[in-house]
Computed example of a mutant assay.
Amino acid sequence: MYRILRLGMVSLLFTGIVDVQVLKYTDARNLLMVGKACSSKEYYHRLDTALFKDLPPKIKYLSTFSCGLAIGFMTNSSVIAAEWEVKPDKPSPNLSAIAHKGLDLYIERNGIWEFAGVGKPELNSTRSKSIIVQEMDDTPKKCLLYLPLFSETKTLKIGVEEGSEIVALPYPFEKKVLVYGSSIVHGAEASRAGTTYVAKLSRRAGIDFINLGFSGNARMENSMADCLADIKADAYILDCVPNATAQQISERTAYLVETIRNKHPEAPIIVMQSIAMDIGNFNLKIKSDLRIKDETIRNEVEKLCKRGVKKLYFIEGKDLIGKDHEGTGDGIHPNDLGFERMAAYLEPKLMEILNNNE
């Protein structure tokens, strides 16, 4: 397929360029949704906040973001495109436009999920239409399309060639793991939605990871503990140190862990320290404050273990993003290198815990 663009007296021949208007589009709601905690009236929201009325207002707002959600489908089309709409929102200084309100496609090849392309958003519009990948072969492909990290997705349609097939991907996971945390879990500084450590772990481990990261939050409020406990999962990861104070950690960790444990007596609960934030490399106060918080969460976990809480695990944070101070984008949030290091460090530890729990 080709078209000719005439620019003044010059004609340019572009091969392989596809007109997004000639593709057939399928509503993503007819395909597979992965990464969602539970069903909700608003299809692309992470939580149904009407069920959890006591949550802090900021958590309710951030729950509307489609962070961690992905659409699974199979197609033999040589072209994959998308048409989507997001709610108007302010851009973040910690994000690229693609991470903020774009799409991120992975295709399985030889049992491994590999990056295939992005849906680039229109910068000055809430509506976008984009070719994600083209000029592929016509063999059947398993696809995961990650939704925007820091936007509320309103609609999404996936475009393929006329005459090709697109169907829902059969649910590919055997386990579900819930991750609760701050903007680090949410994915601030990731270049694309699929490069957060939670998304990486999901593809590598073959587990449906539920991303309940809330930028600027995760202070372990009792209402949030009650919410998490109402969500059934095979394991719970608590990555809550960055935004909580030492006092909040001391006062709230026990309620959070025990509330989950009471409703899910066999599910492993994994508590993490914070990453070693690079902003504290020379700032001694920040370094000291983070060390105090990390020691506080360690002490709380040790006290819970002594009180008889079973299947409670602890992961130190000092080696999560490496020690060369190149693992963050702004000294606080991991960049893609930092997220890759986190996933590589956590995967064997998590798999050992999950395998021992079978």
Rank of each mutant, 00 (worst) to 15 (best):
G327Y: 07
I353L: 09
R298Y: 13
Y197Q: 08
L284F: 07
V198D: 06
I237D: 07
A244L: 06
I132G: 11
V86Q: 01
L238Q: 01
L304F: 07
N356Y: 02
C305G: 14
P121Q: 00
V167Q: 14
R219D: 00
V133D: 12
E326Q: 11
R6T: 12
E162G: 11
G280Q: 07
E152D: 10
K142V: 00
K310F: 08
D278W: 02
L95I: 01
T75D: 04
V20T: 15
K60G: 00
P348I: 10
F150E: 01
K157I: 00
E42T: 12
E302C: 02
T253I: 09
S151K: 13
G102S: 11
A28H: 02
K176M: 05
Q248T: 11
G163P: 00
D319S: 08
F65M: 15
K323P: 04
Q247M: 11
I184T: 02
A246M: 05
E189H: 03
E340F: 06
T139A: 15
G213E: 02
I315H: 07
I131E: 03
N243K: 01
F282A: 03
K90V: 14
E42P: 01
P268R: 08
I17R: 09
H325T: 10
M342W: 01
G119T: 07
A199Y: 05
E295L: 13
S215F: 05
Y44M: 10
P334L: 00
L256T: 13
I112F: 06
E295V: 03
V271I: 14
I353T: 13
L149P: 03
D226V: 05
R252N: 15
P93R: 10
E302H: 09
Y44N: 08
A70I: 04
S151N: 14
Y61P: 01
S130H: 01
L312A: 05
K120T: 13
N335G: 01
L123W: 03
I207W: 09
I286F: 12
I332W: 09
P170C: 12
R127H: 15
D294I: 04
H186W: 05
L238D: 12
P242C: 09
T64L: 00
G187R: 00
F209P: 03
L178G: 04
K87V: 08
D319P: 03
D208E: 11
T259M: 11
I71E: 01
N94E: 05
M33H: 09
T296I: 04
T26A: 09
Q21G: 12
P242K: 07
R298V: 07
P121C: 03
K101W: 04
Y2T: 15
L7W: 05
R261N: 06
S66L: 09
G338M: 06
W113P: 00
G213I: 00
E221Q: 13
I270C: 09
R29G: 01
C240V: 10
P334G: 03
K303L: 13
V257F: 00
L31W: 03
F150G: 07
R204A: 15
D278G: 15
K58Y: 14
C143T: 00
H333Y: 02
D230C: 07
P121R: 11
E85Q: 11
G119P: 12
P348E: 07
S40A: 15
I297Y: 11
M277F: 15
A193G: 14
I332P: 01
E108T: 05
N30V: 06
T15W: 01
S39I: 06
N30Y: 04
S11N: 13
Y106A: 01
R3A: 08
